[in-house]
Amino acid sequence: MQWYVIFKKEILENWRNMKWIWVPIVFILFAVMDPITTYYLPKIMDAVGGIPEGAVVDIPMPNANEAILMSFNELGLLGVLITVVIAMGVISGEMKSGVYELILSKPVKYTNYVSAKFMSLALIVFLSIFLAVVAGWYYVSLLFGSIDFTKILTSILFFSLYFALIIGIVIMVNTWVQSPGVVAFLSLIIIIALNVLTSIYGHIFTWSPALIGDYIGEYLHSGVLSTEIWYSALMAVIFTFACIQFAILTLKNRALQ
């Protein structure tokens, strides 16, 4: 009941500050940008000119699977950035402004407070990813060739789990410092560290959630879900849960200082 009250308030807040509008639009732009520019690149170069006479520019056209993977990659970078930005003040901002004090003077359970915020953010981000990838898929189907939609849906599900982890990390950092800017900075450092460590030790950490994007590429290509993608999805869920728990504990301990 109390959880739902906070959740509803978050949804309403995100509606009034237009997050429900701009986040999906920005995600869609990221997803369709690459396939479209890749397709039209030869024509653009022709029109712009500047290529010496007689030079043969031969850009290999990607196939449909490779094209939609561009959308995923783009979201994996810029989409993550936007996710960090919309989540950076979700708790720290309320602490900084002081409204946290009024809310927590009511018998609010920290578990409800943190998890409702997580779910409301996840809802926006998941919806944005869904719309963005579907839009990307639409253009890819028009320009490069068809892809089975169930493959797209499965990929979106796995991809969303990676984003759940991103939100979890940002929420955890939210409870450490009271400045949204610093929260964004620290969160990005953690996310980058996760990705760098994974790319260095990828052969050991085959279950790393940061590899979900790579595994989606393999899956789109082969059509078979590997064991690794299941493991990394499981790890993403576990890490997300751990981040949320850690955030709750941090807030509780702060209150009990």
Partner: peptide, 11 residues
């Protein structure tokens, strides 16, 4: 409880 400088959700 009323804090010294109450802050609300201004929206």
């Amino acid at each position: 409880y009323l804090p010294q400088f109450p802050v609300f959700h201004n929206w």
